[in-house]
Design a protein around this nucleic acid. Sequence first.
DNA 1: TCGCGCAATCAAGTATACAAGACTGGGTGG
DNA 2: CCACCCAGTCTTGTATACTTGATTGCGCGA
Lengths: 239, 239
Amino acid sequence: MQRNGSTASSGRGGRVYAVLQQAIVDQALPPGTKLPEDSIGAQFGVSRTIVRAALQRLAADGLVDMQVKRTATVARPSLEEARSVFEVRRCLEREVARLVAEKWNDGFATSLAAHLSEEQQAAHGGDSKATIRLAAEFHVKLAGMSGNPLLARYVAEVVSRCSLILSVFGRPHQSECAIEEHRAIIEALAAGDAARAATSMEHHVALVERRGVGGEAPAEPDIGEILARYLPLAPIASV
Amino acid sequence: MQRNGSTASSGRGGRVYAVLQQAIVDQALPPGTKLPEDSIGAQFGVSRTIVRAALQRLAADGLVDMQVKRTATVARPSLEEARSVFEVRRCLEREVARLVAEKWNDGFATSLAAHLSEEQQAAHGGDSKATIRLAAEFHVKLAGMSGNPLLARYVAEVVSRCSLILSVFGRPHQSECAIEEHRAIIEALAAGDAARAATSMEHHVALVERRGVGGEAPAEPDIGEILARYLPLAPIASV
DNA sequence: TCGCGCAATCAAGTATACAAGACTGGGTGG
DNA sequence: CCACCCAGTCTTGTATACTTGATTGCGCGA
């Protein structure tokens, strides 16, 4: 590794960035959530300067919306954006599969096997938060194995955005049945079959997209529908 | 287009960013050039705050090196980095070719034809600066036609980095014989032959890489060798 | 004469102050 | 009764002050 690359640049700003990013992809901060600079700064014990830089990086990553003179918010990807992201992701991860198959070695095998078993454990334990996180990490880890730092950075970015997208468009509690697909990819890689690995990967990403964005209606901030579900319960409730 | 996307975000900062980026890819600011925040700010009539944001964006783009407590400099890509960038670029532009072939229409045809003739004019007129710039713009324009804003952003980024790379590793005065290759790509696209367009594009990018990075020795900041060429002229010269 | 350490200078990291544009609520007119 | 407008408040955009870490040039010792 050379230079600082994609990870947290200067100490404190990097910390704020990392925490916010994790919170967003974990859906702890749902799309549309306001991200005021000073309150975040107070939370972390830093000034707005730091928070601002972090928000700008997140905006560059597509995780945050920033408009002039407007409070930054967690991004709410449109359906169109979602398709763009998946299209690029498919292309990038296909390349990752090709490259990793070429470079395959025992270290990769053990690392991925360990990861897979973690995934299974989380899925078995019903820890959906961890399951989602591990699924994303699988792809990031694989991209790191490509030996191409730029490719890895792009994959990390699109994977993050996909998490956000799924939080907008995905069915709420759908189980991540992706583990078997991950296993298939690993098997193809282990067999040194770059073509099959690429195909498996492409298939997997396509399935993730279908599960997430599917033929589903936009599920846009359809205020009427959403409120209708709450009205019977709280006709004129607070907030 | 939605949101602000990749272009200059807030007015002034965007201006600084755009100018610096252009200067870097035009090689007006060669790799290693120091970019002190306050003198740049003075130049543009803005404070360090603005310049800093612009430098951070450029650093995220890989055009600028920023290390803690050290003056930012124009990035000096390593040979390894260069290969990474071209690898990703090949993959992305292949996808661009596929997509543009699918969406091909007369507007694209006339726009690209016009661009090609501009390129020829510049090459004919011996304006190598313009030739290089137009060659880069060709790829960015094509990526924009893919209809995928994220893909377009990534392509713009790798193309910028390639310009920088060529300024480090490329032979100085080599003519950009890429115009014929551009024509071949356009022809394949116009024929609606996505596969051939993708192949042409891949071939073209490979050739650009070979011309730029080639089998060439790293041309690293090999101080000994570089100084040896100067010593006979100025044994203990100033600087 | 050359190398090393120290001190002065410079630039980046961060906080904060100030100005200006958005949001909110209430009041007024239709 | 509703809609619109206005003022107060809040939050961002930018500049700047201050602190701390790096850089460089000079003087001292070998």
